[in-house]
Structure formats: structure tokens, C-alpha cells
Design a protein around this nucleic acid. Structure first.
Length: 421
RNA sequence: GGAGGGUUAGCCUAACUGGUAAGGCAGCGGACUUGAAAUCCGCCGUCCCUUAACGGACUUGGGGGUUCGAGUCCCUCACCCUCCGCCA
């Protein structure tokens, strides 16, 4: 959410930003409501002032043993008028909030203008795409031959899109998670958190999943709790409604959690195998920092996520998303795509975003510095999502004999094993 | 699930049978000082009055009610603590 005063004073800027993102906003309605709201506020506050003064006098009269019948009768009418105005103000505030919730965060000046995928800018590619002297198998074939996954039994338990890992497949998944957690806690200085996998509505509003994405999430109705679609939710909400100490920023958290997404309405080719599932594992990085350093922090976050792929020796590219592909709440976002040789395409394994104070304002996350209280900037990025990472890993390191060689950094996590198969 | 107690500003703590939130700590700015400590003054949640000054409204976990007036009384929801029950 943007600040009401900021929108008021920067109507054109907000309009341009929303347009660049392809979001429709009604700023005319905003201005109308905002003006009416301020007018009513002045009127109502004046009456309230009268009431406060009179009430004080009534109190004094009564204490002195004098009657206050006339004054009280008069105040009754005034209170009625205040009540009417109060309701009107509340009505307008409701509408105003609705309009403001529909206004997206503004893209940062460094974000390229554009409408869609073709306007995203590849800012980096790393590693060699592997070539094979045999026809490479895709991850489904490899998984079958090596007994790493069991999609049909996963479906039996919970439906399609719920993968089941087994044997070395399950161990490999666990190894990747531990490898990434150790990297981010050890080398990059993140504090590991193991949060609840369910979160309440307040959290979902804080990070912006609600009200828009309710249909994309799993809800436990009895308790009105949502299964988290990403660890961004619990990690960012860790400090919801708090005032942080400025000299302790930036705060850096990492968590492994499963992620649950209904992704209602997405079917077809993209859903095969691990490419799009309802439950997947992810290691997530979240930072809280002061506004001045958030873009530098974003570059660092990106580098820390990239390092996972570099250490694993997997080819990847980094794309800077254009305004049209930027999510509602983000100011700037890089996607990291890993190369999956048998799929013959890049798979998105991370989005690293700076939200500036958009989430912080919604979630009430502030910091104290120099006697003042300001909103922090929040950032997050996957570091990384394992399902697609696993796809790239087994496809990249496969041999003609349908083995999978393990890159050295992973071996300690699999008891020193060098290959699967 | 049952019973009781609690939630006051960044933190801690007050407020008679309803009378309009008092203090303390920490922090920031200033005065004093060679410097520091101590002391004193101001600031230290949100919003409105176009800006500033001045002023005003709101803020005692959220929402609602009674009242001229609610931290205080009533209803409701959330969370925390204690005990009981259940349980890995």
C-alpha cells in the first residue's frame, strides 16, 4: 500500500507507475474520496472539540454540586450529529481503503518499461549448457529409472500435483535443503527460522496475499488458517506491528518450508512432473533494512541466491523483469532461471524482489533511528525452490547409463555418495 | 474443550463509586561543559487544518454498545498466562 499523502501529492507519478505495470486504477475516485474525507474530518473534529469542552464543563459542574441538565440535553443533539458524521467518515474510509489497496507499488526507475516477457532483460548468464553424446532423458524418465519419485502414489494420497519423493530422491531433496540452509546461515549471515506452516489472515494481509489471492491458497476453515504459499509470509510477518532498533538493521532471515499453492485454473503442459505442483519445498531469504540501502541489499540477495547454482555447477540466467511483469507489490525484481537440458528450457527457481515500504506499511513494520520512527524496506528471494532445481540437477548430471553424478558440495549431505544409480 | 487472570506509546508501570491517560526507563535535539557525566528544557504513536507556526481530532489488543462523557460498565473476537481435561 502506498501512503495516502504520497498518492495525493503525486497523482501523476502514481498513474504512470500503475499504467506501466498494466494495472487499472481509479485515481479520480481516489481524489474525490480523499477530498470529501478531509472536508468531513475537519467538520467532525470541530464538533468533537465542542463536545470535549462541554463534557469537561459538565464534569466540573457536577463535581461542584451544580445542576447540568440543560448542558446535557444540548450535548445529546451534538452527539447525534457526530454519530452521523462518524458513520459517513467511516463509509468513505472503507471505500478509500479499497481504492488504495488496488494501487500497485511503483516500479523503480531502473526497471525497464515493457509489457511482457519479451521486454524482460537478461542481465547475466552463467555456466555452460551441457551437451550430451546421447539423447538425454528428462527428469520423469530418470526419476522412474532411479526410483526417485512416485507421482501416482502422491496422487493417491492427495491428488495430482502432490509429488512424493522416495529413497535417494527423498534424500537428495533433503540434501539440497540442508546444503542451502548451511550456505545462507554460515556464509551469508542469515538467521535460520523454522516457522509455522499455517498463518492467519492478519499475516496474509500483511504481505499482500489477501485480499487478492485467496483463491490460490489452501484454507483450513475450522481455524481460519491458511497453508503458507511461501515462507515469505511467516518471515516477513515475524516483525509485523513492531518497531525495530535501527542499529540492528539489516535483519536477515532464512527458512526452509514447504509451500502450498492451489494455483486454481492452471492446467496443461506446464503442469507435468515437477514443473508446477501444489506442494514444493523452498528455502526463502527475507531481509528488513533501512530505505537507503535496500537496492544494494537486493543485489546482495540476488548474488546469494545465485551462489547456490554456481556451487552446484548449474547453468542459469538472471532476468530483470520489466514493468509489465513486475508483481503488484514489488518495485524491482530479478528472476533466476536454471537451465534444464532435457526440457530444453530455463526454469524459474527464484524471484528476488525489493518491496520498498509497500509491505512494511501494510504490516506496520518500522524502525527507530535518530528519535524518529520510519517504515523499513522489505526484500525477499528464493534461495532456492527445490522441485525445479532437482529437475535441472538430475537432467544436467545424467550419464548415458542413466546415472546421476552428484556435484561435490552435495556429497557430504548424502554420506559422501558420488552418484545416484 | 472447561475455569480464572491478563493486554495502557519502543520497554516498564499508574489512574477513587465512569469526569477526559500520571509517571519512569531507553532514544533524539538543545542548554550548560575543554570533553564527558550529572542536571535542566523540548521532542519522542496516527491523522487533519495546502506548507510552517498555532490549533484540533484520534490512540489504553480489534470491533460494537450504554452515556453529555468509557482505560473503567456491557457484548463480541483475537492473543498471552495459570489450572483442569485431552494428547505426540
Amino acid at each position: 500500500m502506498l501512503d495516502q499523502g504520497f498518492i495525493r501529492e503525486n497523482i501523476e507519478l502514481v498513474e504512470r507507475g500503475a499504467k506501466a505495470k498494466g494495472e487499472k486504477v481509479d485515481l479520480k475516485l481516489f481524489s474525490e474520496l480523499d477530498q470529501r474525507w478531509r472536508r468531513l474530518l475537519a467538520q467532525r473534529d470541530g464538533l468533537k472539540h465542542q463536545r470535549n469542552v462541554a463534557s469537561k464543563r459538565i464534569g466540573e459542574l457536577i463535581r461542584d454540586g451544580k445542576g447540568a441538565g440543560d448542558e446535557i440535553a444540548e450535548m445529546k443533539g451534538l452527539s447525534q450529529r457526530i454519530k452521523v458524521l462518524d458513520e459517513e467518515v467511516k463509509g468513505i474510509e472503507g471505500k478509500l481503503r479499497e481504492v488504495m489497496l488496488s494501487i500497485p507499488n511503483l516500479p523503480h526507475e531502473s526497471v525497464p518499461r515493457g509489457g511482457g516477457d519479451e521486454d524482460n532483460v537478461v542481465v547475466k548468464t552463467w555456466g555452460e549448457k551441457p551437451s550430451f553424446d546421447f539423447p538425454p532423458r528428462d527428469h520423469l524418465q530418470l526419476g522412474e529409472l532411479l526410483s526417485l519419485f512416485d507421482f501416482s502414489r502422491g496422487s493417491k494420497l492427495a491428488g495430482s500435483g502432490f509429488p512424493l519423493y522416495k529413497g535417494l530422491g527423498a534424500q537428495l531433496e533433503r540434501a539440497l535443503i540442508n546444503f542451502m540452509l548451511d550456505l545462507h546461515t554460515g556464509k551469508h549471515g542469515y538467521l535460520e527460522v523454522s516457522p509455522p506452516f499455517l498463518a492467519n489472515r492478519g499475516c496474509m494481509e500483511g504481505t499482500g496475499q489477501l485480499p487478492k489471492l485467496e483463491e490460490d491458497m489452501y484454507l483450513c476453515e475450522h481455524d481460519d488458517l491458511f497453508l503458507i504459499p511461501t515462507a515469505e509470509v511467516p518471515l516477513t510477518n515475524l516483525h509485523r506491528g513492531e518497531v525495530l532498533e535501527g542499529d540492528r538493521l539489516p535483519l536477515k532471515y532464512v527458512a526452509y518450508t514447504p509451500c502450498f499453492r492451489r494455483e486454481a485454473g492452471s492446467y496443461g503442459k506446464e503442469t507435468r512432473g515437477f514443473l508446477r505442483v501444489h506442494q514444493f519445498d523452498k528455502v526463502e531469504l527475507v531481509k528488513f533494512c533501512r530505505p537507503e540501502s535496500s537496492y544494494q541489499e537486493l543485489e546482495e540477495l540476488l548474488g546469494e541466491a545465485e551462489e547456490v547454482l554456481r556451487l552446484l555447477g548449474l547453468a542459469y540466467r538472471v532476468r530483470l523483469l520489466c514493468t509489465g511483469d513486475l508483481s503488484f507489490a514489488a518495485s524491482k525484481c530479478y528472476d533466476i532461471d536454471v537451465w534444464a537440458p532435457a526440457e530444453g528450457k530455463y526454469l524459474e527457481v527464484s524471484s528476488c524482489s525489493n518491496y520498498e515500504d509497500f509491505q512494511a506499511r501494510r504490516a506496520g513494520i518500522r524502525f527507530r533511528e535518530g528519535g524518529k520512527v520510519r517504515f523499513v524496506h522489505t526484500l525477499n528471494g528464493s534461495g532456492l525452490a527445490t522441485a525445479r532445481l532437482l529437475v535441472a540437477l538430475v537432467e544436467t548430471y545424467q550419464t548415458k547409463e542413466a546415472e546421476v553424478l552428484l556435484p561435490p558440495p552435495l556429497r557430504p549431505y548424502l554420506g559422501g555418495r558420488e552418484r545416484i544409480g
